[in-house]
Nucleic acid binder design. Structure first.
Lengths: 129, 129
DNA sequence: CAGAATCCTCGGGGATACTG
DNA sequence: CAGTATCCCCGAGGATTCTG
């Protein structure tokens, strides 16, 4: 599980900062990752962990509004993607820490600026609803 | 509609690059914008327009897999957010061009690096499914 | 060409209760 | 404390048809 040494590879249809023809051929792994990462709670979990590792309960409280079910499944997905590291201690009561893997950190580094921008401009954007 | 002169403002709970306490208080405009932008097709539309303005049909073909309904509603949402500019010509047959507003461009500038990274690492990430 | 309208499905996600 | 297990619902999103 040494995610830090995974090779970077180029996906058909999206090379570096340019597109060839279509954008992200429908059945492209990128779409899957995109869905995971831009899922309603995926972004927030990544952002929450971008500062420091957190325990389950801390995550639950930090990410206001998330349900236990969604926190659990989001964490499992991101862990399966190699973006989040789960460290459980077999103590009683149990203690589980979540943090970003090196890969997750790379992602967060690109996500935080985006979130910062959104946070700064959200007030100017929201229209109806 | 001069989106280029809108004031940047700070949203409670998310100041600059740091969080105060919770992350994005549930009923925060940021959540709404986040939902728009990270909607299944929102990202792809932004990315597609990040290179150049496109016509309806071009968008439809560029973003592989999007339905007309979703393209229409996504575009309307993003237009309402002041991120996308719609320019229609009253000709027959009609011609409609879509492009990013200055605000949308700012967003895209932060989105593209993220997408580039995802595209580069998706292959290494996708596990199951 | 650029949509609007309509119908329908599926699963993301919420609420609640239970457990090691 | 850190989850799992169920039940259930709503709305994002798909497929198809129609139109100026």
């Amino acid at each position: 599980m040494d995610v830090s040494t995974r090779p970077a590879l180029t996906v058909a249809g999206f090379t570096g900062s340019g597109f060839t023809d279509g954008i992200l051929p429908a059945n492209c792994p990128t779409r899957t990752v995109l869905d995971h990462v831009t899922s309603k709670w995926g972004v927030l979990v990544i952002i929450a962990l971008s500062r420091q590792g957190l325990r389950w309960g801390e995550l639950r409280r930090t990410i206001e509004g998330i349900s236990e079910k969604m926190l659990a499944s989001t964490l499992r997905t991101l862990e399966g993607d190699g973006l989040v590291l789960r460290e459980a201690q077999a103590t009683i009561p149990p203690r589980v820490d979540y943090s970003l893997t090196p890969l997750g950190r790379e992602l967060a580094d690109r996500m935080v600026p985006l979130m910062d921008w959104i946070a700064d401009n959200a007030g100017a954007i929201v229209t109806a609803e």
